[in-house]
Design a binder for these strands. Structure first.
Lengths: 257, 257
DNA sequence: CGAGTGACTGGATCGTTGGTCCGGTGGTCG
DNA sequence: CGACCACCGGACCAACGATCCAGTCACTCG
């Protein structure tokens, strides 16, 4: 019993598909199988033609693409589903919540940049500089990531980088109070820098900078230093980042003595 | 003249008020002045009793309270309005969008911590340490702020602090490539640190830490260093912050030579 | 003293969101 | 041949940010 083609229809001859033969037409016409070309005979065949059956990977890849193109607050489950050619509810089979998608997307971009070859105590400054630079580059290449950094970074790709950083520091000879502080300082410096830069670049940087400059000049009695030196943004992001990093590394190196 | 008792009602004796005498009962009963006790005589007095007529300040103050109590994603215009005893739409007269509320709330908390007394070239390390420490303390006292840092910080309270920082650096003798990089490095270090710490503390830190530790130990072949030293979180936030700050300041100081 | 003004308020409503319910699918294996 | 399972999606829900527009009040001016 129970069997579903309740109304005897040839189901399995390889074509046709005979999707929902009965259904008694339903109470409401309800969109009614898209246009009038819904007759069995025009249906492609093999059910869902060639859709690679929608994996979590495919969802994440498409989410990253959507985020890159339209930004963080334009990511909605519906829009994402539409790009994937499915219904929004289907996504919830592969993923528990929207936050899952964000976490996965965020971790996935860290896979884009390789690690410097194995930690080497003698080259720790170069290795850390390269690591941290790649980290920053990835975050800036996907500016939406900054807005989303306020969640635990515990995905495999992030952990790979964190592991490398700790291993490098250990190999360089740093021990406990300094070890934690070094990892802490480096991570937070990168995160903070990226967050700030992405924040400003997200809204037409030049215009924003000019508005800020004007605002400061108009209140130069209250902000004399800022008015004179210009707004503390966008002077030369790369140079400031590099210089600040050397401060950190210099101070770190000195702590070993 | 001028006197306002339009309908010959003694208005100014301190009571009664005669709020909306006419109104012809309106076309739709529509909730009908809350319950049946809507008769003029039972109405409090003085029109809108004692509501301080809902200023932008009041909105921001209440928004901060709401954020403190319930977190960033529980802030909605409706809930905020309810706490203020008004309808949600009313808020939009004082504020253009919800983001305005966030910007104002974020800036307002920076007013909580004072500035060290005027910049003094000789005490720049102490002054900057104090400034940055206060900054961090405020952000941690309002953990929702971290999730919201991805927006331009250009409010008056933030600018006061930024001005102080720049003035201190100038007074200390830093000049251009270093001046920008120093301000950049310090700000971003604080922001990154706070963001990370608030992120973890937002979800029951001890539990999260244990879960992370377990996760790492289960994969100790992939993350040997991390598994051995424990997850790179929550060891001692304050100490790591202070130590990292000294690295930065040491490196900065060395750059002056 | 009546008409008017501008600051301020809120009910109804719109389009959209994240998420759930539940009734389906096709393919495969016993 | 029937049962199962991985997978899909229409209908639906409560809640959200935002807007429209019809007011109501304190006060001023002619």
């Amino acid at each position: 019993m129970v069997d579903h083609h309740t109304r005897l229809v040839v189901v399995n001859d390889g074509e046709t598909g005979a999707a929902r033969a009965g259904d008694a037409d339903g109470p409401s016409t309800a969109r009614q199988g898209r246009t009038a070309a819904g007759d069995v005979w025009f249906r492609p065949s093999r059910a869902r033609r060639e859709t690679p059956p929608l994996s979590r990977e495919r969802i994440v890849r498409e989410a990253v693409a959507l985020l890159d193109e339209e930004g963080a607050e334009r990511l909605t489950m519906r829009r994402l589903a539409e790009r994937l050619g499915t219904g929004s509810t289907t996504l919830y089979w592969h993923v528990k919540t929207k936050d899952d998608v964000l976490d996965l997307a965020l971790d996935s971009i860290f896979g884009e940049v390789g690690l410097p070859s194995g930690p080497d105590g003698g080259r720790w400054r170069e290795d850390l500089t390269a690591l941290v630079g790649g980290w920053r580059a990835v975050l800036l290449r996907h500016p939406w990531s900054a807005a989303v950094l306020g969640r635990p970074l515990m995905g495999p790709n992030v952990l790979d980088r964190t592991e490398f950083m700790h291993a490098t520091l250990v190999a360089a000879g740093f021990t406990e109070p300094h070890l934690s502080a070094a990892a802490y300082g480096l991570s937070n410096y990168v995160i903070g820098s990226t967050l700030m830069q992405a924040t400003w670049q997200a809204r037409d940087e030049e215009t924003a900078r000019q508005a800020a400059e004007e605002h400061l000049r108009a209140r130069r009695d209250r902000y004399p230093t800022l008015a004179e030196h210009g707004p503390p943004i966008g002077k030369d992001w790369d140079a400031s980042f590099a210089l600040g990093l050397t401060y950190l590394l210099d101070g770190l190196e000195a702590s070993k003595l």
